[in-house]
Design a protein around this nucleic acid. Sequence first.
DNA 1: GCTATGGGTTACATAAAGGATACCATCCAA
DNA 2: TTGGATGGTATCCTTTATGTAACCCATAGC
Lengths: 120, 120
Amino acid sequence: MNKDRCLKPATDEECRKAWLTLKDTMDIVGGKWKLVLISILRGGKFKFRELAKEAEISPRILSKELKELEMNGLISRTVLDTRPITVEYQLTPYSVSLNELISAMYDWGKIHRQKITGKP
Amino acid sequence: MNKDRCLKPATDEECRKAWLTLKDTMDIVGGKWKLVLISILRGGKFKFRELAKEAEISPRILSKELKELEMNGLISRTVLDTRPITVEYQLTPYSVSLNELISAMYDWGKIHRQKITGKP
DNA sequence: GCTATGGGTTACATAAAGGATACCATCCAA
DNA sequence: TTGGATGGTATCCTTTATGTAACCCATAGC
């Protein structure tokens, strides 16, 4: 099917698949924190508490979000043999595949803000 | 700032703005129904009950989602002078500005599914 | 008046997401 | 043996999102 539009010639099944794919993406980078954490991690490696402080997120939620991002191959978790141990989180090479998407979201957000505020 | 990465040289303030912009976008096209409705409306005009049936969404939620999409200029609502009156919803020309974003979401969803399932 | 159609709204209930706080475990150093 | 650093968990609670069912309003036909 045409990826840009779900036009009438497409079957219902094809249309459904199209937005299921969109839904998959939303499930993985949607929610309040995923893109915030990815944005922060674009700045380099962070330890658990550093991330918590940077994002102003509670440890419970941070822990959950990091697990989900790791499960989806977007970040890696490295335990360092220090005393006491420290854990570093960083983006994986695979996470680069999100660049276009994030860029598109950022661009549209700017376009839309211009439209709403009327400012250039 | 560099729109692709939030690197260390950027100030905290700039980083914050970057993900606030991402958040704006998520607020408008995120959630369970927005992209589903936009996808459906790419197929043409729909009346209220047609949309409800097509998306399998309850009238209460549909009403709310349509109002939000309309407020953001993405769809238009036209009352037709029929008996009883009917109301048509359709995408606005502005909604075309979302094409790149939706395309990027769709592409990444496919890429990611391939990675997860291992299938081509 | 009774019923049907189209476009919703209201009131209520449940599910999912997010947050605050305290706490646990380990290691080490004073 | 007490206390700080680090990486979390456990518990409880609030807020937001979504769902269900019934209902309201106008009009038209019978």
